[in-house]
Amino acid sequence: MQLHHCKECVDLLGEYVEGTLPPDRAKALEEHLSACPPCITFVRTYKATRGLCRKALSREMPQELMSSLSSFLGKHVPGFARPKSDTPAAPEDSAADSAPKKV
């Protein structure tokens, strides 16, 4: 297949950046990119959008909220006791540490 327009390229980007685009379509997209500097820039900024948003949206959970959650669950879950220091806090930026894995 062949991509004739930038619009076709942009339409395929979502699956392309995730590596799920079928090989023939990925090849056609890369052929288009090799001859289209605006689309190369578009791909770079499209990818950067994800990284910048992920970074900007990280937020520390307030200690008071952890305490209130613990108190709440302590009233509803028999034997619930918040661990003191045996479970280290997850680093703020390491979403992978506790992020759900693919199933």
Partner: peptide
């Protein structure tokens, strides 16, 4: 099996990620 302490460790482990999701 009713081990509340085990559930507390799960909460401790996952609460930050859930907080970020809920807040956003």
């Amino acid at each position: 099996k009713g081990d509340g302490e085990a559930f507390a460790i799960l909460v401790e482990r996952h609460q930050r990620q859930l907080y970020r999701l809920a807040l956003r």
